[in-house]
Design a protein around this nucleic acid. Sequence first.
DNA 1: CCTGCTTCCTAAATCGTTTAGCATGACACC
DNA 2: GGTGTCATGCTAAACGATTTAGGAAGCAGG
Lengths: 350, 350
Amino acid sequence: MTEASSGAGRVTLQRLARELGLSTATVSLALRDSAVVADATRIKVQEAARARGYVANRGAASLRTARTNIVGIGLHDIINPSFTELLAGLEDAFSIAGKTVLLGVSQEDVARQTRTLGTLAEYRPDAFIVSPAANSTVADLKALAASGIPVVQVTREVEGSGFDFAGSDDETGMGLAVAHLVGLGHRRIGLIGSYPAASTGRRRLAGYKAGLAAAGLPFDPTLVTDGPGLRDMGRQGMARLLALDAPPTAAVCFNDLTAFGALMGLQAAGLAAGKDFSLVGYDDIAEAALWHPALTTVYTRIPEYGPLAAKLALARMADPHRPVERVVLTPQLVIRATTGAPRPVAPRPV
Amino acid sequence: MTEASSGAGRVTLQRLARELGLSTATVSLALRDSAVVADATRIKVQEAARARGYVANRGAASLRTARTNIVGIGLHDIINPSFTELLAGLEDAFSIAGKTVLLGVSQEDVARQTRTLGTLAEYRPDAFIVSPAANSTVADLKALAASGIPVVQVTREVEGSGFDFAGSDDETGMGLAVAHLVGLGHRRIGLIGSYPAASTGRRRLAGYKAGLAAAGLPFDPTLVTDGPGLRDMGRQGMARLLALDAPPTAAVCFNDLTAFGALMGLQAAGLAAGKDFSLVGYDDIAEAALWHPALTTVYTRIPEYGPLAAKLALARMADPHRPVERVVLTPQLVIRATTGAPRPVAPRPV
DNA sequence: CCTGCTTCCTAAATCGTTTAGCATGACACC
DNA sequence: GGTGTCATGCTAAACGATTTAGGAAGCAGG
């Protein structure tokens, strides 16, 4: 009257050992190809294991070895294609290294992040990969630090946390975008999606300011719109910029999603991107190249993050005492069709 | 000279108990708010736990309780936005139910899927959510079935596997798309992205055929292009259709990603979607509405899948003997700008 | 003083592995 | 035959929690 699989309960190492007339030690060693067990025995054990459908219980093994082969990944969001790509890269890289991913999503909510990371910690991952929720502080990550488990921050970082970091040089990237627009002749350049709640947002804002300064242009706060990097926000931000008395002739965006929204805003105002108004995105997700018109944007080399962060994590697992490492990739400007020289006279919507 | 956190090693239940002068039994019960322990004791224990930074070891607990609160999620892909959305929905729903997600991605590779699911199984998840890789057979999932762990298939299914299933009525959905095109006056309608390796592909093909038959139109295999649902494939498929002696005037696509590629193919041929050629996507991912021109597509109600699959899984955990349940959502046609009446004369590219 | 009942807590078994250290037997060597 | 060396496999103690059966203490009632 038992559930699936004949016999009572699951097949464990002990049962296997009893049935084979061996000790659990020998069976355990045999299954892991230890050289200390005779070939004949090893083969016999492995065959029996396969035949009986033995599946090791890693929880039990981890209890003994203090290694779970789990990596806890805590992301602030996975819907944005750039973070999906990050997650996919991480999963792939860790999978190759024999680690399995335990996933937690904070949805930009610090309280939820605390809860989620706490839960992940209970599974004793060998390492954490974290992209902190907006407004996270060092204190919010203190519990992680106290756990003694290696932590690698990816994309975003909490300054002063003292963890390894893999990300992109946001300041330089945004500087490239602004310089490109300046080179085309633009003098009033907006920023859609200032997002100081995240380190990426702060640095992109800094890059924007630096870019203006390098061109001798003044920083005008009214040309900056706030909000997280979502489509809606891009659209609203663009609407606000266009409604100004002296609207900008171009804008850089916090990310590509924002840019897509901004493009809709342009379209709604009857303006053509690349002609009436120039727009630069950020990230270079797959859709950017396919969009119509194709989006000029800054490539942050997202596909490299996953493997990179995984490498950092594996290195720290191997040597917890190695110096903190920060890998900052240099982004690249990708010029497509949404940027061009400004119209002689600044456009005003009717 | 020890690592972080004072004292030797981590703080365990036993240590906590010793320091408090209590037994581990009492501490364990107190931490879980058992009514059997005095209020004063309970509070004292919980405060001490917090103060000492105690983090329960779920691996150890699971060993005893045979419950891990882990859900193994094996997806064939997570890059496609529709599956990202699925994953996000699953994570959210399970997180609310107190379950944590252990992730595995097969990348459409059956061998990799076998490996991945095998690894996930070693962590003894309370349930599996699976979207099987293309060409998976019942045999490929037999190991899962034998494990005695509840399995819920989502989106795709392996016929005859006998697992619960949450998905969309693909046949009806594709029928809607074809009927819409027929209603606009189209008589030669292609299918870009026949994908018989997956149940979704087979059913969408069936729906395509049924739609044609319902309109009294013949099925012409040359109007069908093969391949997985990726952008490149859509572009190539469209190129092939347009190169035919008698090209179709419209086409349905396996999914939105394919449709985006197909739109590029149209553009490359100098044709305007919705005017020179009508195109219908499938899924209705966020980009579909924002694309230019906005994509007519079939909404498969993806956001509902995650919570739905989670519900099925939780129900089966609660009662492993309940009858197998298949929930099939009815999709909806979303008419936007890529479809219209056919041109009097079939277009030919130069 | 005994019995019976609460209330609060403990001892000990248990889950399924890993691993340090020891036992055994075979064989060779002197 | 005593001794040393190997190869092989076993014993037993962890790992860190949960849980069941039961014990000690206090108190009431006879």
